[in-house]
């Protein structure tokens, strides 16, 4: 209970610090949203009117308090560029980034776990070594470049998909998911290589331990030892690594959305920063922060569920 409370307080402090940083960052960097919206020809009166409509004529601390207060009531403000509530604007795009990240994560789990087990079983075989080298290469490729490679090879050469042919989930969920497969793969591939390397090593380390020899001596089969003992023990470090990857994938999706022309949170974040659309940027950053905190919290709790010894140690 105390543990959960401690976690909660640290989460609130983190959110507070991030909110201050993101809010005041825009006070430091140059750029006038009203000028941006009304253009170079606008009269000074029109600019003044727009600033007051955007609430920019108020002192900064007042704006901060108003913003935080509104946030608690679920009102994230109105987008400067789109003149619609930020909640509506981003709510429409949540499934886009959500599915992209989820899809990448599913691919990561689906590809890396069986692959690692295979590697561990066939340690030091020729194929094992060859694939480790290939993994090393894939790991070194940044996701955006992986995206370009995938687009070129599967899109232009093999014509398995139409580059830039994104279809929104409202129009056609099937084609939406089908298009997301490729960007998800671009995000997942380098991470699959990393996970395999880690998980394989972890399993081999566990396999060398005494209890494995004991298990064999009791007459268990290889499969049994692997799945009932080794896997269970090697799973803990993997869980942390996967959770880290999940939060990292959110960041990775920003770049990949750009490469594949997907209008998700990443695109909105970039465009809104460039367009000085403060409410949108603030809402996205706060959302991402909350997500990362949540994932870390869940990982911690899962950890303790899987291995009760952690409870005693802390």
């Amino acid at each position: 209970m105390r543990y959960a409370l401690k976690k909660l307080i640290s989460a609130i402090v983190t959110l507070f610090v991030v909110s201050v940083a993101v809010f005041f960052a825009f006070a430091v960097i140059p750029g006038d949203p009203a000028l941006r919206k009304l253009g170079t020809q606008a009269t000074p009166e029109a600019l003044e009117m727009m600033r007051s409509r955007m609430g920019l004529d108020q002192p900064l601390p007042v704006r901060y308090v108003q913003w935080v207060a509104a946030f608690f009531t679920g009102d994230m403000g109105t987008s400067f560029s789109y003149d619609i509530p930020v909640g509506t604007l981003l709510g429409d795009k949540l499934p886009v980034t959500g599915f992209l990240v989820l899809f990448s994560f599913v691919l990561l789990v689906v590809l890396s776990i069986p692959l690692s087990i295979w590697h561990a079983k066939h340690e030091n075989s020729r194929l094992d070594r060859a694939m480790l080298v290939a993994g090393q290469v894939i790991m070194a490729v940044p996701p955006f470049f992986m995206g370009i490679l995938l687009t070129f090879f599967f899109g232009i050469v093999l014509k398995l998909f139409t580059p830039g042919g994104y279809v929104s989930w409202q129009t056609d969920p099937g084609r939406f998911l089908a298009y997301l497969f490729w960007p998800s793969l671009a995000i997942a591939l380098p991470r699959v290589a990393m996970t395999v390397k880690l998980f394989r090593a972890e399993m081999l380390r566990e396999a060398g331990r005494d209890y494995v020899r004991t298990a064999y001596s009791r007459g268990h089969s290889t499969m049994d030892v692997l799945y009932r003992h080794v896997l269970k023990n090697a799973f803990l470090p993997l869980l942390t690594f996967l959770a880290m990857n999940l939060t990292d994938m959110v960041a990775g999706s920003v770049v990949i959305e750009q490469v594949f022309g997907i209008p998700g949170f990443g695109r909105f974040l970039l465009v809104s920063i460039l367009g000085r659309d403060y409410p949108v940027v603030e809402a996205i950053i706060m959302g991402l922060t909350a997500f990362i905190i949540l994932v870390n919290l869940v990982t911690d709790l899962l950890y303790r569920a899987i291995d009760p010894r952690i409870e005693e140690a802390s």
């Binding site: 899809f103 599913v106 691919l107 789990v109 689906v110 776990i113 069986p114 899109g155 014509k159 398995l160 998909f161 139409t162 042919g165 099937g174 084609r175 998911l177 089908a178 298009y179 997301l180 497969f181 490729w182 799945y227």
Partner: peptide
């Protein structure tokens, strides 16, 4: 393994197939 990983694999394969169709 059976209850979670296998459906995940199935979903991935399905998506890949769908992707192939959409591209054509």
């Amino acid at each position: 393994l059976k209850s979670t990983l296998l459906p995940m694999i199935a979903m991935t394969v399905l998506a890949a197939v769908l992707g192939g169709c959409a591209g054509g």
